[in-house]
Design a protein around this nucleic acid. Structure first.
Length: 572
DNA sequence: GCCGTTTTCGGCCCGACTGTTTTCAGTCG
């Protein structure tokens, strides 16, 4: 059983208990436990195998949940969840996804109207039954209908790339207002989380109505959902929802800290303020009623005896402990990246020629690249067999002669086939400067076979790196069932690099596994997988993911100058 | 249900906005 499954199990227990009206802190305890498991780099099953004692060591896991984890892994479920599911039908939990519906209202809908699915809820709202319910009304019924529509059409989360572009455009326009002194993206987008549920934008202004008018009339905005003195919520045409908060200048730092989150990080920060006899909210840090800090984030953190923590790390995954010991990493930056080792040309499914890709890479200041078209298994992309590949390399070798300021490697993105063999013979791979081995097909195979394939690739002396290791598509397709500790151990032993694929829909390795790979001492390589000249521009998203993993310049191989990077290619 | 340099009991972050109410509960972030 995978960590996500165990985490989801306890998340569901939390949801169901909440609908039943259980103690809110008990509900939170299940959610905290769930999150701990979700954030683990190693399989929870491995820890559970050492008994409950090892589990209790994990934060948020006590005796009770530890025992349930053991039962869950042994039997595939827990009696508690089975009982809860009998009491609360599965469709009822779905209703929690609707903006504006929380556990209390969902419970009322289920108890009073016997509604057990989104479809039934829609019918009940349309018939007027919802509006007649005590505590509900016409507006609530309308909100429910719109919420269902929203879930059906756009789902719940958006790629960071899409969300960030919209948020930054709006921030830019807000800054043009005379009354606005500062504006910035906050929330999960500022933390560069791979998906965003919604957007938070913050502004300081002498005239909050001017900022809200601008947002309300903005071309990207479809509808104003709510508007008060300091807060406005809108829905963009893309479907994503955005909060704008307007605060006074002296509160800007406190508000940035507050609205950047994460919730889990902020809870710990506020506990620290409490211990020091202080109170923190979005307007500032207060001792009794006296403002102690608020203008800058730095001052807020300083007041709780911490250095400023980069937003990408604010997940309560150990960053506060590192900050306490003054051991925060000096995070990688986009400007540190010197090379890109994964890209395609018209030889397979790219849209630009070898020359065009080289020129585009030079324009972006890259000092070395690897051209890595597909191998033959990827027929859809016109993948290369040995003969076509050798011709392609001959052409690359000819063209690269013309450039003295950029190194161009003859590479290949070689499929790891379903039977664990590589898609091209060893003698061909031996001629490559750079081989990136990947899973494209058979991602749903049992974990055992997936690991056999990956380990076989890692052990091949010609393989330089594993590309987009799990093959997931963010929010759409789960990755292959990888036992990461075994993969990383083998990669470290054989000197094989691990990729963070920078494409916003992949970001694979994810932040948690990228951090684990670093812990194994494996050099990470961040690649764009560009299929066009503009494909290079997604590099920043790979860097964001690396920052979330706490990676520094030294952890990332393609920050090295080429003469040093080259040494990583020699397998000992 | 978890947790502990005030602790094994009694806490557990904090405020804005809305809708349905006649003073506030529910929801959200």
């Amino acid at each position: 059983m995978k960590n996500v499954d165990v985490a989801r199990h306890f998340e569901e227990i939390g949801d169901l208990l909440e609908i039943q009206g259980a103690n809110a802190f008990r509900v939170r305890a299940y959610r905290n436990g769930s999150r701990t498991i979700e954030d683990l780099a190693e399989p929870i099953a491995g820890i559970a195998a050492n008994g409950e004692k090892a589990l209790v060591e994990l934060p948020g896991i006590g005796k009770d949940i530890a025992a349930k984890i053991v039962v869950l892994i042994e039997t595939g479920t827990t009696p508690q969840l089975e009982k809860l599911r009998e009491e609360v039908p599965p469709g009822v939990v779905d209703m929690l996804r609707i903006q504006g519906l929380g556990p209390k209202k969902v419970k009322a809908l289920f108890a009073e109207l016997k509604v057990t699915s989104l479809d039934e809820l829609k019918a009940a709202a349309e018939s007027g039954a919802v509006a007649d319910l005590k505590g509900f009304g016409k507006k609530t019924a309308q909100v429910i209908l719109e919420g269902i529509e929203h879930i059906v059409h756009v789902g719940n989360r958006f790629f960071l790339a899409e969300a960030l572009v919209a948020a930054e455009a709006i921030v830019h326009d807000l800054k043009q207002l005379k009354s606005v002194t500062q504006a910035s993206v906050a929330g999960s987008a500022r933390r560069r989380k791979e998906t965003c549920g919604d957007l938070d934008v913050l502004a300081t202004s002498t005239d909050s109505s001017a900022a809200m008018d601008l947002l309300g009339d903005h071309e990207l905005v479809e509808k104003v959902l709510a508007r008060g003195e300091t807060k406005q919520r809108v829905r963009l045409r893309s479907g994503i929802e955005m909060d704008l908060r307007v605060v006074p200048d002296e509160s800007y730092g406190a508000a940035m800290q507050y609205f950047t989150g994460s919730k889990e990080h902020n809870i710990v920060i506020r506990q620290r303020t409490q211990k020091r006899g202080l109170k923190l909210n979005e307007y500032g840090l207060f001792r009794d009623d006296e403002l102690v800090a608020g203008e800058t984030e730095e001052a807020i953190y300083k007041a709780v005896d911490l250095p400023w923590i980069p937003p990408e790390l604010r997940e309560n995954r150990g960053e506060i402990e590192l900050a306490e010991q003054d051991k925060l990493p000096k995070l990688l930056e986009l400007k540190d990246i010197k090379g890109d080792l994964h890209m395609h040309t018209t030889a397979t499914d790219g849209t630009a020629s070898i020359t065009e890709m080289i020129e585009a890479a030079r324009e972006r200041g890259l000092k070395y690249i690897a051209i890595t078209d597909h191998s033959k298994r990827v027929t859809m992309a016109n993948g290369l067999d040995a003969e076509r590949l050798r011709k392609h390399w001959t052409e690359i070798r000819k063209i690269r002669e013309e450039y003295s300021d950029i190194e161009v490697l003859c590479g290949i993105e070689c499929d790891i086939l379903e039977d664990a063999e590589l898609d091209l013979p060893d003698d061909v791979l031996a001629e490559a400067d750079w081989v990136i081995a990947v899973l494209h097909y058979g991602l749903k195979q049992p974990g055992e076979q997936i690991m056999k394939r990956l380990l076989n690739a890692v052990k091949n002396p010609h393989v330089s790196a594993i590309g987009h290791p799990c093959g997931r598509i963010v929010g759409r397709r789960p990755g292959a069932d990888i036992h990461y500790p075994d993969l990383f151990k083998a990669a470290a032993d054989h000197g094989v690099l691990m990729e963070i694929n920078a494409h916003p829909s992949r970001l694979d390795l994810d932040d948690i596994q990228a951090a684990a790979a670093k812990d194994h001492g494996i050099p990470i390589v961040i690649n764009t997988d560009a299929h066009s000249t503009t494909g290079f521009d997604v590099m920043q998203y790979g860097v964001y993911q690396a920052r979330r993993a706490g990676l520094e310049k030294n952890d990332v191989a393609n920050t090295l100058p080429f003469n040093k990077f080259k040494k990583l290619l020699k397998r000992s």
